[in-house]
C-alpha cells in the first residue's frame, strides 16, 4: 500500500470517529431536550446558548468523578468489560458507506472506511461481540442487580439477533450480495426502488429488533430502573460508566445508519444521478445520508419517551413467537417471488 492510500484511510477513520463522537454529544443533548419537550419541561438550557454546551459539561463531570471498583468485584474483568462493549460499537460504522465518492489528487475516493465483501455480516458479527461486554460487566460487578441485568440483556440480544438477521436475509436475497454498496446500488433510482417499499414486513421486523438490540425502550429491560437500579452498569462510575453510555449511543448511531442503508437507499438522493454531478453530487449524497440518519435517531428518542416498557415474558414471546416466524415467512415469500420472476 502506498503512503497516500494509507493517509487517505487514516483521514477517513478519523473523520468517521469524530463524526460519531459529535453525533453522540448531539444525541445526548437532543435526548434531554426532546424528552423535556414531551413532558412539558424545559430541559437543560443554562450551559451555553440554549444549553448546547450541556453535553461537554456532562463529559467533564464524568472525568471528575471518583472511579469506584467494588471490593468483591473481579477486577481485571470489571475493567475490561466496558472496553469490550465500546470497541465493537465504534468499529461497526467502518463498513457503512456514507456518501457516493469524490475525486481528489486524481484518484477516486469512496466515502466509506472499508469496502468489505461481507459488509452486512461484519456488522452482525460485531454486534454479537458486544453482548460479552454486558455479560462480563454484569458478572464481574458481584452484585445481584448487575448479574440479573446482564443475563436479561444477553438473552434479549441473542433472541432478537435472530429475527434481525433473518429480516436482513430477504434484503440480501433481493440485492444478491452481502456488500453494502451493492445493496445501495440495488435501491438506486426511483423513489419506490427503496427496500422499505419492496420489503415492508422485513423493515418492521428489523426496526423492532434494532430497538431490542440497542437496549432502548420499549425493550430496555436490562436497565429497568424500578427493578434493577441500573442493570449491568449499576456498580460502574466515572469514565467506565461513560464508556457504557458512549457504546449505547454509538450503537444507536450505527443502527440508524444501517436502517438507512438497508431500507432507505443509503446515501441515494431520489430521482438524481449523483455520479453525473461530480463534487456537488457527493456532497448531496452525504447530506441525504445525514438527513435520513437524523430522522431515525430522532425516532429512537421519540419512541423512548412515548412507549411503556415491555414485561420480560412479553419480550421473549414477541421475539420468538411473532418476529421470528414472520421473518421466516418473509424469506419464503421473497425466495418464491424471486424464483417465479427468474423462471419467466
Amino acid at each position: 500500500m502506498d503512503l497516500l492510500g494509507f493517509i487517505i484511510i487514516l483521514v477517513k477513520v478519523l473523520v468517521v470517529f469524530a463524526a460519531t463522537m459529535i453525533t453522540v454529544m448531539g444525541m445526548i443533548y437532543a435526548e434531554r431536550r426532546v424528552s423535556a419537550f414531551m413532558q412539558g419541561r424545559l430541559g437543560p438550557n443554562r450551559v451555553g446558548p440554549k444549553g448546547l454546551l450541556q453535553p461537554i459539561a456532562d463529559g467533564i463531570k464524568f472525568f471528575m468523578k471518583e472511579d469506584l471498583i467494588p471490593s468483591g468485584a473481579d477486577k481485571p474483568i470489571f475493567i475490561l468489560a466496558p472496553a469490550i462493549l465500546l470497541i465493537p460499537a465504534l468499529m461497526t460504522f467502518a463498513v457503512i458507506p456514507f456518501g457516493s465518492s469524490i475525486t481528489i489528487f486524481g484518484r477516486e475516493i469512496a466515502l466509506q472506511v472499508a469496502d468489505v465483501n461481507v459488509g452486512i455480516l461484519y456488522i452482525l458479527a460485531l454486534t454479537s461481540i458486544g453482548v460479552y461486554g454486558i455479560v462480563l460487566a454484569g458478572w464481574s460487578s458481584n452484585s445481584k442487580y448487575s448479574l440479573l441485568g446482564g443475563l436479561r440483556s444477553s438473552a434479549q440480544l441473542i433472541s432478537y439477533e435472530l429475527a434481525m438477521g433473518l429480516a436482513v436475509v430477504s434484503i440480501i436475497l433481493l440485492a444478491g450480495s452481502l456488500r453494502l454498496n451493492d445493496i445501495i446500488a440495488d435501491q438506486q433510482g426511483y423513489f419506490l426502488s427503496w427496500n422499505v417499499f419492496k420489503q415492508p414486513l422485513a423493515f418492521i421486523i428489523f426496526l423492532v429488533a434494532v430497538y431490542a438490540e440497542t437496549n432502548r425502550l420499549p425493550f430496555d429491560l436490562t436497565e429497568a430502573e424500578q427493578e434493577l437500579v441500573g442493570g449491568y452498569h449499576t456498580e460502574y462510575s466515572s469514565l467506565k460508566f461513560a464508556m457504557f453510555f458512549l457504546a449505547e449511543y454509538a450503537n444507536m448511531i450505527t443502527a440508524a445508519a444501517l436502517t438507512v442503508t438497508l431500507f432507505f437507499g443509503g446515501w441515494d438522493v431520489p430521482l438524481l444521478d449523483e455520479s453525473s454531478l461530480g463534487l456537488l453530487g457527493a456532497i448531496l449524497s452525504v447530506l441525504s445520508f445525514i438527513l435520513k440518519m437524523a430522522f431515525f435517531l430522532f425516532l429512537f428518542i421519540w419512541v423512548r419517551w412515548t412507549f411503556p416498557r415491555f414485561r420480560y415474558d412479553q419480550l421473549m414471546r414477541l421475539g420468538w413467537k411473532v418476529l421470528l416466524p414472520l421473518a421466516l415467512v418473509n424469506i419464503f415469500l421473497t425466495g418464491g417471488y424471486l424464483t417465479l420472476t427468474a423462471m419467466k
Partner: peptide
C-alpha cells in the same frame, strides 16, 4: 476467507460461547 471469518464470529462467538457462558 472473509465469509468464513465473519461466520466464525457469528456462530462461535455470538452463539455457542454465549450458550456456554449462560
Amino acid at each position: 476467507a472473509d465469509f468464513l471469518a465473519v461466520v466464525q464470529i457469528v456462530v462461535y462467538v455470538g452463539g455457542i460461547l454465549v450458550l456456554i457462558i449462560f
